[in-house]
């Protein structure tokens, strides 16, 4: 067991409070989404935007943080960072699936197809596979230190997919449209107040949800690793007895 001085962020009420806040914001998002005026072109179909785009954002955030925590592990060799890196990758996989799924549902009535091999969709699918592969590799390696090292390297290298995926709609001709909202380009094409508010709320809610899930998963991962080190100690003990 690691014994650290208790800081403010270790308080036991923080994690449930984060979970509750994200739930509250998601409920608010629903209210704004379902009272928003229909779009001039797409009608009610635009109501999937406050779910699809924040899901994709969360996948980007998760995979970005997977790399950050992986790098932190490689520098400090603290197991804490390995657990957070892996937890973040797991969250990313969940939300990239949500993004692919809602994208397909949106694509059918607007584009006329669930799926096309355009650059945005292909790179999204590739990212999904790479991170599932990373989790598989973690499952294969028994030695915790080696597992953490290999996983951190994969996590850092794989994060190159995030900017490629984001820029794909600018670099190549894609079926997928370019972002409606860009802070860098100071441009917004979301001229529908209801949808815009719902989208911004949803971005916030999903981000809080990420912090909640990361803390929760990190706490579970700590217990799993405690169990694992106990097992290793017991094996070492029984080997000594056998000798």
């Amino acid at each position: 067991m690691q014994s650290k001085p208790k800081s403010f962020f270790d308080a036991s009420w923080i994690t449930p409070a984060l979970g509750f806040s994200s739930l509250l914001i998601v409920v608010l998002t629903f209210v704004f989404t379902f009272t928003a005026q229909p779009d001039v072109q797409q009608g009610f179909l635009t109501r999937i935007l406050p779910l699809h785009v924040p899901a994709s954002w969360l996948a980007y955030l998760s995979f970005g943080m997977t790399a950050v925590y992986g790098l932190a592990y490689l520098i400090t060799r603290r197991n804490h960072f390995d657990r957070l890196s892996a937890s973040s990758a797991e969250i990313g996989v969940v939300f990239i699936v949500l993004s692919l799924f809602t994208g397909a549902l949106w694509g059918r009535p607007t584009w006329g197809t669930y799926w096309q091999w355009d650059a945005r969709m292909t790179t999204t699918l590739l990212m999904f596979m790479v991170y599932v592969g990373m989790l598989m590799v973690r499952g294969i390696i028994d030695d915790p230190a080696r597992r953490a090292r290999v996983s951190a390297v994969i996590g850092v290298v794989a994060s190159v997919g995030v900017p490629i995926n984001y820029m794909s709609v600018y670099w190549w001709n894609t079926l997928h449209q370019t972002p409606s909202l860009s802070v860098a380009a100071k441009h917004s094409s979301l001229a529908n107040p209801g949808i815009l508010i719902a989208f911004l709320l949803s971005l916030l809610g999903f981000t809080v949800l990420y912090i909640y899930l990361l803390r929760l998963r990190g706490q579970i991962a700590l217990r799993v690793s405690d169990l694992e080190s106990e097992e290793i100690e017991m094996q070492l003990g029984s080997m000594k007895v056998a000798q």
Partner: peptide, 9 residues
């Protein structure tokens, strides 16, 4: 159909 990124009420 390649729809645009523009949405408006």
């Amino acid at each position: 159909v390649k729809h645009s990124e523009e949405y408006r009420a």
